[in-house]
């Protein structure tokens, strides 16, 4: 599936958004680069508990075309900022079981510091900005939308994330 709704180059949605289990091993195998001495892989896995309740499974929904485009842009920006040799990110949609990976980010650079920093930057932005939503289904039969980005409750601004405020405070 390719989107062409934007003036930006079309991106292959399935590269960034997948309704199938994420192939961490395969993605990692493809993320080695002769100039990169450091490869960092972050996997956001589904926990069996949240807010003191037992989680049965999660379901993710996305505006897939928009999410793919935004992830591509975030990766491009990180690549430029840290001179990454490789930057990969993929987010799962649909039902995701406990212990499975919901999102993966891989960064490869000559040295580890940049690989870690860029990886954290990419996952933070994906979690907070990209139109993907989590619904938690608990074992007691209840469900709850959201749960990760409640930044607006902390910052008082629906469009301001906590890490943006932290950045301002640190400057």
């Amino acid at each position: 599936m390719t989107t062409s709704v934007s003036s930006l180059p079309a991106v292959e949605v399935s590269t960034y958004i997948s309704d199938q289990p994420l192939d961490l091993v395969g993605l990692l195998a493809g993320a080695h680069h002769p100039l990169a001495g450091a490869v960092v892989l972050f996997s956001g896995d589904v926990r069996d508990n949240n807010l003191g309740k037992q989680v049965a499974y999660l379901e993710y929904e996305a505006r897939a075309t928009m999410a793919a485009k935004m992830i591509a842009e975030i990766l491009d920006e990180a690549k430029r900022k840290w001179n990454l040799n490789i930057a990969v990110a993929q987010h799962r949609v649909g039902k995701v079981a406990v212990g499975e990976s919901a999102v993966v980010v891989i960064t490869a650079t000559p040295h580890r510091r940049e690989a870690y920093e860029a990886n954290r930057y990419i996952i933070d932005r994906i979690k907070h900005e990209v139109p993907i939503w989590k619904c938690e289904f608990f074992t007691d039969g209840t469900k709850k939308w959201g749960g990760n980005c409640n930044c607006h409750e902390l910052t008082g601004d629906p469009h301001k994330h906590i890490y943006e405020v932290e950045k301002e405070t640190n400057q």
Partner: peptide, 10 residues
């Protein structure tokens, strides 16, 4: 038009 609630990916 898409109406986009605060994200909660990851």
């Amino acid at each position: 038009i898409c109406i986009i609630p605060p994200s909660s990916g990851g």
